[in-house]
Amino acid sequence: MSTLSILSDNILYLRMQIPKMTQEKIAEKLVVSRDSYAKYETGKTAPPLDVLLAISRYYQVSTDLLLTVDLRKYSREDMIELPNNRSVLPILVDEAGENKIEIVPHKASMGYLNGYNDPEYIGNLQYMSLPFLHNGKYRAFPAGGDSMPPYNDSTYFVGKYVESRNDLKKGKSYFFVTREGFVYKRYTDQNQYGTLVSFDNSFYDPYEIEWADVLEIWEYECSINKDDLGLLNPVPMEIQSMFLSLKNDIQIVKDSLKK
C-alpha cells in the first residue's frame, strides 16, 4: 500500500470510531472545506502538512503511525500505546552538566506557538539550570491572568515535558500549550476528544480542552520569580552555588536515611 492509501484508510477508520462524526464536522474542526477533506479520505489528495498535524493532534495519533501503520488492526487503547505514538524532546545540558531549562519570556509567548517544534527557535531562547531537577525535559513558561492566583506576571512555571496524555495524573497541575496560548490548569479527567481541566481559582468553572488544540503538555514542577532570581540574565554564580549546596545537603540526608 502507498503512504497516501494508508493515510486515507486511517483517517476514514478513525472518524468512523466517533459516533455521528461526519465529514462536515471533522472538516470544521480541521478548518478545511468538506470537499477538501473528502478528497483526503478517498486518497485523491494528500492533506497539507498543517492539516496533517491537525489530524494527528485531534486523534492523538502520531503522523508516523498515520502514514505507515494500518490502524484498523488496533483498538483505540492499543493505538495510544504503540511505540511510535510518543513524542520525546531531547534533553540538553550546560557546561556544568546540568539540564538546560529554556525560558519563554512574556514578549515571546505567541512566537513560541509557531516555534515550539523548531530547534533553531528553541536554541535561541535564554536558559537557566536548576540542579535539583533531573530525569526529564524541563522548560519555564510565564504565568499570568486572573485564573492563576497567587502568581503574578513576574512568575515563571517550570514544567516537565509529558510525552503521552496517558501520563496525566488526576489532581496534578499542568501547563497546556494550545493553539490559542498557554493554559495552566489542574487535570481532572479525559476522553478521546479532550481533557477536562479545572482552575485553582474556584471562581471559574471547569471546562474541556480539545486534543486537537493541544500542542504540548508540561507537568508543573515549581514556580520562580524572575525579579528575585534575575532569570532574564545569566544565573549569578552565588545562586548556582546555593542550589549546588542545597543539592549536596539533600543527598547527605538521603544517604543518612538509607543507613
Rank of each mutant, 00 (worst) to 15 (best):
E24L: 14
T63H: 01
Y121F: 15
P105A: 09
D9A: 10
L82N: 00
Q17S: 12
L7I: 13
E102D: 11
S154C: 14
K169C: 09
F176W: 10
G230F: 03
L168Y: 06
E41M: 03
L92S: 12
I55T: 10
Y13I: 01
S256P: 02
P119L: 08
I101L: 01
K39Q: 15
I103T: 02
A96G: 07
D153S: 13
M242Y: 10
S154Y: 14
V158G: 10
T68Q: 08
L14Y: 03
Y74S: 00
L130G: 03
L196H: 03
K100F: 00
M1D: 15
F175T: 15
K39F: 06
L67N: 03
D146Y: 08
D189K: 04
D146I: 14
V197A: 07
N225C: 14
M79S: 04
Y151E: 09
Y127Q: 01
K185E: 01
G115L: 05
E238N: 13
Y151K: 10
N152E: 07
I101A: 00
Q192S: 09
Y127R: 01
P142M: 03
K258W: 00
R139Y: 07
L89V: 12
Q23N: 15
V197M: 07
G159I: 13
F182K: 02
T22L: 04
G159D: 04
S129R: 06
I122H: 03
A54T: 07
P83N: 00
A46L: 09
K107C: 07
E41R: 03
D64I: 05
G171F: 02
M21L: 13
P48R: 08
R179C: 09
L65E: 08
K170Y: 05
I101Y: 01
I103G: 01
P149I: 14
E208W: 12
K73S: 00
S75N: 00
L71V: 02
L257E: 06
V158K: 08
M110N: 14
F243W: 14
E208V: 15
G97C: 11
N225V: 14
L125P: 10
P236G: 09
S164M: 01
I11W: 05
G123I: 11
P90D: 04
L82W: 00
I55S: 09
G171I: 04
L14C: 04
M16E: 15
Y184T: 00
L215P: 05
S164C: 04
Y184D: 01
R15Q: 15
V88L: 12
K254F: 02
G43N: 05
L14A: 00
H134W: 02
K137R: 14
E24Q: 15
Y220I: 03
E95A: 14
L14P: 04
F176T: 06
G194V: 05
Y116K: 08
P131S: 05
G123A: 15
D118L: 10
S129K: 05
L30Q: 11
F203H: 12
E98M: 02
P48N: 03
H134C: 09
I26E: 10
A140N: 07
W211F: 11
P234G: 06
